[in-house]
């Protein structure tokens, strides 16, 4: 019996853990990898790193047409998540939440919020969405 595939990266999904290539500095998130997507090092030495909960929007769209179980309008972005320590950020897709569309732009700072992403029918599946930091809201 196989489990649902989102279980495979559950620890990274819930704790924002990445994996840094010691050859070129590229950060894998959320997959724990043994090869590097940037320099091709194989086997690559990958070191676990903690990512920050504050990131920056690199680009975004606002979705108007999606399957019925996803709310629209749905803003979704490519977000850079810096490491807690030195090094490059991880780059990942992030859904935006609790944010006005007017607040979003390239370069906007966002903060990770632990939220339900979807339900598997019995229980919520939680991970991070992103929103504009509350204290900076007008």
């Amino acid at each position: 019996m196989s489990g649902p595939r989102y279980e495979r990266t559950r620890r990274q999904d819930q704790h924002l853990i990445g994996f840094e290539c010691q050859a070129c500095g590229w950060v894998s998130f959320p997959e724990e990898k043994r090869t590097c997507k940037r320099c091709g090092d194989a086997p690559a030495e990958m070191t676990e790193v903690q990512l920050q909960e504050r990131g920056e929007i690199q680009t975004f769209v606002v979705q108007q047409y999606l399957p019925d179980d996803i709310e629209t309008p749905q803003p979704v972005a490519i977000v850079d998540l810096p490491q807690a320590g030195e090094g490059e950020p991880a780059r990942a897709y992030g859904l935006l939440t609790e944010t006005d569309l007017e607040e979003i732009d390239v370069g906007t700072e966002v903060v990770a919020r632990f939220r339900e992403l979807f339900s598997d029918g019995e229980r919520p599946i939680n991970s991070f969405k992103f929103s504009v930091p509350r204290e900076e809201k007008a």
């Binding site: 999904d13 680009t59 979705q63």
Partner: peptide, 24 residues
């Protein structure tokens, strides 16, 4: 786009994927 992959573009349809290049 609705697959249960948390960081693999959940909600990112084809227009969204290409639209992100337009925004930037």
């Amino acid at each position: 786009a609705a697959l249960e992959r948390l960081w693999r573009g959940r909600g990112v349809t084809m227009p969204a994927y290409f639209g992100m290049r337009a925004t930037r």
